[in-house]
């Protein structure tokens, strides 16, 4: 059954492109009395034929929802009655929302910073060693692991056993090895948020490393040779010659990770579900959507995420436009 649907979908897609192009060639044939005019007219229409499915899907799945979400954020829980700014007023006074905002800001500072830092270090060291490619692959590997899978992996790391039993989580094993008492890491506020962030840093460092390593290799040799001749130490070369030259790339990595952070959801949902002070906006939104059954409040939370992404969006568009010129 599923296989049939797959075939129908993919085949239908191919058919559309073939048939619509054939039809266009039939309506405006490139021969006969009006050949010239026909070719021109067909050339005006063809781009839109090529883009139609994409534009339709983009409009329905990404543009339309933005407007509906704005609309829903001014409506009540069922999306029936207009409630004005009530949802926003509720949001500002909601304890969980404030907690989510604080946590999101912590995430926004810590995760991009740590990922970029570790990525930069990893890129710098793996480019200089013989087994660099292997090392890169290992650090990059978590990128392929789902957030849920990562959550299971790290939950085992943070696992707690009461005192007297043998610890099976490595964190508690090390902690008790140094003489500490075993901790229930995921339920201790503030620490737990950072432990969740560690999971995302673990995943995103590979991404940062790959991009930054390519940028480091793109640095012109002459600048480095000149600094060696001037007697700069390797550390100075890295900090004062290399890093300033890849500043633009660092910024790109930073913003890309920032966007990932704003949407972080799976990790929080599966590890703590926002309890014990770890709530974040994306999970708050999901909570109100499915458990609270309140499309108004859920949409409002989504709008807040959108607003936080907007500056990066504008920055991206301006950069892309500048590059196209």
């Amino acid at each position: 059954m599923a296989a049939v649907t797959i075939l129908v979908g993919v085949f239908g897609c191919i058919c559309y492109f073939f048939l619509s192009n054939m039809a266009l060639d039939r309506i405006f044939p490139a021969s006969g009395p009006n050949a010239g005019a026909n070719i021109n007219r067909a050339n005006q229409i063809r781009p839109w034929l090529f883009m139609l499915p994409a534009l339709l899907l983009l409009c329905v799945y990404l543009v339309y929802p933005v407007f509906v979400s704005v609309y829903l954020s001014f409506m009540d829980a069922q999306g029936q009655n207009f409630v004005g700014g009530a949802n926003y007023a509720w949001l500002i006074n909601d304890v969980k929302f404030r907690e989510s905002m604080v946590n999101n800001l912590l995430w926004l500072v810590f995760v991009p910073a740590a990922s970029t830092f570790f990525g930069l270090v990893a890129a710098a060291v793996t480019d200089r060693i013989r087994w660099g490619n292997f090392a890169k692959a290992m650090i990059f590997m978590p990128m392929a692991i789902s957030f849920v899978g990562a959550a299971v992996i790290w939950k085992l790391v943070y696992e707690y056993r009461p005192e007297g039993q043998e610890q099976i989580g490595i964190l508690n094993a090390i902690w008790t090895g140094f003489g500490g008492e075993p901790q229930t890491w995921l339920t201790s506020p503030v620490v737990n948020s950072f432990l969740l962030m560690v999971v995302l840093v673990w995943i995103q460092t590979g991404f940062a490393m790959v991009i930054l390593s390519a940028a480091l290799r793109g640095i012109p040799e002459e600048t480095i040779e000149a600094s060696i001749l001037d007697g700069a130490s390797p550390f100075q070369i890295f900090m004062k010659i290399k890093v300033p030259q890849i500043w633009g790339t660092i910024l790109v990595v930073w913003t890309t990770i920032t966007i990932t952070v704003l949407k972080v959801f799976d990790i929080v949902l599966t590890m703590t579900n926002g309890q014990w002070g770890t709530q974040v906006l994306a999970n708050l939104m999901f909570d109100w959507m499915f458990r609270g059954n309140d499309t108004g409040r859920a949409s409002t939370a989504a709008i807040i995420i959108m607003l936080m992404v907007t500056p990066i969006m504008i920055w991206n568009i301006r950069n892309a436009a500048r590059e196209a010129r």
Binding site: Y61, L62, Y64, P65, V66, V68, S69, L72, I259, L262, K263, F265, A282, M285, F286, M289, T295, A298, S299, A301, A302, I303, I305, M306, V309, I312, M313, N316
Partner: peptide, 11 residues
């Protein structure tokens, strides 16, 4: 590219 998924879910 950066529109958050969360926005699209309910609509």
């Amino acid at each position: 590219l950066v529109v958050p998924l969360q926005l699209a879910l309910i609509p």
